[in-house]
Simulated assay, not measured.
Amino acid sequence: MTLSPWTRRLLGAFTALTLLFVYAPLMLVLLNSFNTSRTFAWPPPGYTTEWWGRAWESSGARSAVVVSLEAAVIATAVALVLGTMAALALQRFEFFGRDTVSLLIILPIALPGVVTGIALANAFLTMFGIELGFFTLVVSHATFCIVTVFNNAVARLRRLGNSLEEASADLGAGSVTTLRLVTLPMLRSALLAGALLSFALSFDEIIVTTFTAGGGVQTLPIWIYQNLFRPNQAPVVNVVAAVLVVLSAVPIYLAQRLAGGDVEATTH
């Protein structure tokens, strides 16, 4: 489609405004992490790296980072296994209620986080009698991480079809051998992209975490929220928030690159 010069300029202007609206607050957080003023005076009266040193020395922040990393890694691993199995079952087999099961798998990420958090907390405490803690945190994160892996795997399976798997079966390979040597290699990059997105979602999740982590578990987003309005901690929070933005952006960028490369490869 050919666009007129005025249309291209208009679209470029709207794109620039959108990017400014989204990223200006993030840049402000990064700038305030070097602000000498504890009250975030604007414009900054001076710049310092003192808060970065204090953030590094903060035992609470370091502990919260470790908890977030552990929860994200375990939730992503669980999501990889369950999401892949669900995608294979729903895409490769016909059975009654398949569309309903697919909807139920996708539903957790579509529901408001408050609803999901309350529902999971009630289920853990009343239905299963499980005390809220690290285990319930991982399970709750896995519920929405499964969706990202599932969506990536289903999209890849639909695009590739099942001709290679049928050829493998015709050559005498069993179902396990076909899964190991044909299906999973075809899904590898899609699953990696889903895992990266799942890790990013879990690492910076706060709403569901608030309801399911309990009082003894503190993730990095929870630590940021609890220390945001403390005068002595506010500058350190800006540093941690800036680092969190970078840590969250890296896996999303890698997942986008992987997805983009797959799409390009399938078009040639």
Rank of each mutant, 00 (worst) to 15 (best):
A200G: 06
E264A: 15
T148R: 10
L90K: 04
G53L: 13
V154I: 12
G83A: 00
T219L: 08
G46V: 06
V115H: 04
M1I: 09
L132K: 03
V208Q: 00
T76F: 02
A190V: 01
G172D: 11
W52I: 12
L69E: 01
F124D: 07
M186I: 02
V73M: 07
T143G: 01
R230Q: 08
A190Y: 04
W223E: 12
A167W: 00
R188M: 14
F124I: 03
D262L: 15
A64L: 11
L17C: 14
I252G: 13
P231W: 04
P44F: 03
I109E: 01
W56A: 15
G117L: 01
L90S: 07
G97N: 00
N232I: 09
A16T: 04
L104I: 06
L179H: 11
A72F: 04
T209K: 02
R257L: 15
T49C: 10
G215K: 00
L160F: 06
P235Y: 06
G53E: 12
L31A: 14
W51V: 03
V65I: 12
F144H: 06
D262M: 14
L187A: 05
T210K: 05
D170F: 09
V237Q: 05
A155F: 06
M186G: 11
L184M: 10
Y225F: 13
S202F: 03
S248P: 09
S63M: 06
A200W: 07
R62K: 13
L103E: 02
P108D: 01
F34D: 09
R156W: 03
S248N: 15
S68E: 09
M85H: 07
S175G: 11
F229G: 13
L107A: 12
R159K: 11
C145R: 04
R158L: 06
V138S: 00
S68D: 12
C145D: 02
S33G: 07
E50N: 11
Q226A: 13
L82F: 13
T177C: 11
A24I: 13
A64D: 10
T209S: 08
L19W: 03
G216C: 00
F34K: 08
A265Q: 13
A200I: 04
S175T: 12
L197T: 14
L228I: 12
R156V: 04
A24W: 11
S59F: 00
S58T: 05
L179E: 08
V236G: 08
W42I: 09
P43M: 03
F21L: 14
S140P: 06
A155E: 08
L184G: 09
S37E: 05
S175Y: 08
V154W: 00
T2S: 03
L82G: 08
F124Y: 07
R62S: 12
L181C: 02
S202N: 05
R54S: 09
A195E: 03
T210Y: 08
G161N: 02
W56P: 12
V66W: 10
A155R: 07
I206D: 07
S175V: 12
E264W: 14
A249K: 01
A16M: 07
V263W: 15
L19N: 01
V245I: 13
A169V: 12
S4Y: 01
V114W: 04
G260W: 07
G97A: 03
L187F: 00
L201D: 10
G53R: 09
